[in-house]
Simulated scan of single mutants.
Amino acid sequence: GDELLALTLEPGEYDSTVVCETVDGIGIIDLSSFSENSGREFTSAVKKLESQGVRNVIIDLRGNTGGYLSAAKDISEVLLPKDSVIFQEKDKDGNIQKLKTEQEGQADFDHIVILQDGSSASASEVLIGALKDNLDNVTTVGTQTYGKGTEQVSVPFTDGTSLKYTIAEWLTPSGESINRTGFAPDVEVGLSPVRTVTYPGMEEGEVIVADSVNDNAGALQLFLQYLGYEVDRTDTYFDAAGSEALRRFQADHGLEPTGEADKETFDQIADLTLIRIYESEKSDDAQRNRALEILSSGE
């Protein structure tokens, strides 16, 4: 609300890439990246779910651009049988080395649903490939993944700089390359455009007026539509209907009803939209809801 809260905080260290919860008896593991501790945290999450009798689980890899391949291996060790191929590494001479699990998996879920999107890349795709090729109870939901099928190393120098270069291409256990193509989902489900829209942001002195084209106009009209104001379009052309919707928003929020958007007005609308998205993050998440539906119905 309007309350101002002042706090004094001590700096600390926090490294958690795994968030775990249950919804109606279904486990949800949100894996935000593949860090040094992800394997251990994932193992703890799985043990927690199994102690609660959870038999079906969602692994959320959306927005996970990757990280350490060793973390993908650690997580695969939890879910796959011993000697399962996690991925294959192909060098510039065509030599192939297979990386396999070294211990028997600790988890035995009835059904695993993986949530994926265009930002699911690299180690996320390694995990998707490993689970899809080795298990017959895995379903992917969302949109096409990024398609990062190469492996890099970084060499540091004494002056503080480093050189990062590609050493190999990785392949799925079945020998498939997903580089520049990614994985298509088994069940394609998109998100509301308001959750995925990109825009440059308004500059000081910039104004969006009716009957004009502006790179921020599409986002502005999407935001207004999401907040319950009627617009005719959501592209970069700001038409009369968009201006009228903005005028009504301004009147409702104590702003001068000009029907024009400067930086202050745009930022206020964007902030309010973000708050509403966070408030309804789970109920409006079509991909997550579809995954829950699949597991609840036994599809």
Rank of each mutant, 00 (worst) to 15 (best):
A123G: 04
F42I: 06
E77V: 02
T140P: 10
L292P: 01
V189M: 06
D74V: 02
E21F: 01
G259Y: 03
D93P: 03
G160L: 04
D83E: 13
I269S: 01
S122Y: 15
G12M: 09
P11I: 08
R248M: 12
T145M: 05
Q221K: 14
R180H: 15
G129R: 01
H111L: 07
G129A: 14
K90F: 03
S177M: 03
G63I: 01
K90N: 01
E203F: 09
N137M: 06
I277M: 12
R248C: 05
Y146H: 15
N179Y: 11
S283C: 08
E206H: 10
A240K: 15
E125L: 04
E102R: 04
K164D: 08
D60I: 05
D232L: 11
E102C: 10
A72Y: 01
E13M: 09
I114P: 02
H111W: 07
L227E: 05
G142V: 09
K82S: 12
P81C: 00
S296A: 13
F42S: 05
A72H: 02
R195P: 01
D108E: 14
L222S: 02
D252M: 02
P11L: 10
P173S: 03
Q268W: 08
L80K: 06
Q221N: 04
V153C: 09
L131V: 08
S122L: 11
K282R: 14
C20H: 07
K263M: 12
I178A: 10
E151M: 14
T150L: 12
L61D: 11
V113R: 01
E206R: 11
S243G: 03
P156L: 13
S70D: 10
E293D: 14
Q250L: 10
G205W: 08
Q152M: 15
I294F: 03
D15I: 10
E21P: 00
E10Y: 09
Q103I: 14
D215T: 06
L79Y: 00
A241I: 12
D24R: 14
T17N: 12
D136R: 09
I128Q: 05
T140V: 09
L171V: 06
T172R: 07
E203L: 15
T236K: 14
V153L: 11
G160D: 05
T265W: 01
V78S: 12
D186I: 01
L295H: 00
S44A: 15
E299Y: 08
E41P: 00
T172Y: 12
F266I: 04
D284W: 06
D271E: 13
K98A: 15
G94W: 00
